[in-house]
Amino acid sequence: MIKFIGANKSFNNRLVLKNINLEIAKGEVIVICGPSGAGKSTLLRTINKLEPIDDGEIIVDGMYLSDPKTDLTALRAEIGMVFQHFNLYPHKTAIKNITLAPRKVRGLSRKEATERAEKLLEKVGLLHRRDAYPVQLSGGEQQRVAIARSLAMEPKIMLFDEPTSALDPELINEVLDVMVSLAKEGMTMVVVTHEIGFAQKVADRVVFMDNGEILEIGTPPDIFVNPRHPRTKEFMSSVFHIPIFNVNQEEEQDF
């Protein structure tokens, strides 16, 4: 579904993505983790070409991103993206936020788009808030509306860029629940997150990045419990505030 071949990218002569090779299958859930500045968000943003790469190639659903003939608008319509700061349109109600792109890009009628949006709002548990403006919604509600907005385009791939980092701890779960159910429905998902619990529950593979490089790819236990790379070990022990060998038990208790 998504394939990176030797992708490189630099900002101001600093390499932020180094020789990225990664293949993501249809229906797979990939979690990208690592310290800040590792290039996780940049990697995610190259998939819908919000950030272009300098060399190498990225192939998404058979479309070559470096090919100038690739229709970027069509590509982006197939890829949903959820942001750390939600980025809902503040001048539109929840329902209008969701119906905008399906109507303008997919050419749905107002009625069709509204029906679809209402179904999605119901799915994220916010149908009763359909006419609220973003400012009237809590952070968790805003993020759930943002997820519904992406889903309304019926994308083949969903990208999540630290979707819970800006939320109060109590509001994180309502967003994660939506993401878990999405993963169970077989959506192809790439998620940048520090929510290890979420990764353990639904991730097929975890990608650990540091300094623009992919250091390790493996199943959640591989990366969280038995990391091989010294940098991964160091990161995981600091994430859990405890020695590595206790991690497994600690996480089991959480669930």
Binding site: T73, R76, F83, N87, L100
Partner: peptide, 25 residues
């Protein structure tokens, strides 16, 4: 900046981004 990114990522064209997201704001 996120407003435009959100509009881009849902596939809106540049004209649509202005008409529906940027100009009203």
């Amino acid at each position: 900046h996120g407003q435009r990114e959100a509009a881009i990522s849902t596939g809106l064209s540049r004209v649509q981004q202005y008409l529906h997201v940027l100009l009203p704001q």
